[in-house]
Amino acid sequence: MLELHNVTITYPTGDGIRKCSFQVAPGEMVFLVGPSGAGKSTVLKGIYLDEWPAEGHIVVSEFNSLFIAKREIPYLRRRLGVIFQDFKLLNDRDVFRNVAFVLEVVGRRNKEIKRRVLRALADVGLSHKSRKYPQELSGGEQQRIAIARAIVNEPYILLADEPTGNLDPVTSREIMDVLVRINLRGTSLLVATHNYEMVKNYNGRIIRIENGEII
């Protein structure tokens, strides 16, 4: 369960989002669509509490932004898989360890880490690149690694920020297929994108955002 209730997030510059409300039901596929600068990333940042709602509140599973303690934030984030717009892959370690990293953070055992990472890499079709470093990969491959990292801990909901941002149509399609497949296994999916044309091909619910407001 993911709910936003009248969420306002304001940056010091005055931009941000205003009074945004929507919900994502378990297993649902939702697209948050809007032009650049509309506030899509800001919505997602609010959900994983990188930005804090100035007004309204956000509910993720058992966590409510009104009541959550700072030290509980890591546990909220562990419920989410986030594919960041800028990937946030770590250049000092190889693909395997980039994905394993999420499980190391939550203190999983080595054997389990290995099993889960290999499965996540297989899910995104990159098992054979596990010893490469991120900077040795193409944009599409980096995107897949970001997906593998987001799903490796079996999140409750997957947040994807512009997952096909700089990719050609064929690669975009492949990436979307991966996400849809994960959604079919029961993980809720919230994809933020400016690409309305692409979104139309999938039967997810569409939420439109413009100038920081949901329309």
Binding site: D50, R78, V82, D92, F101, V105
Partner: peptide, 16 residues
């Protein structure tokens, strides 16, 4: 710094 930020975003506790 970048690694630390990313760790925080994927749910690492401060202690960790």
């Amino acid at each position: 710094r970048p690694i630390i930020d990313t760790m925080q975003l994927v749910g690492a506790t401060d202690a960790f």
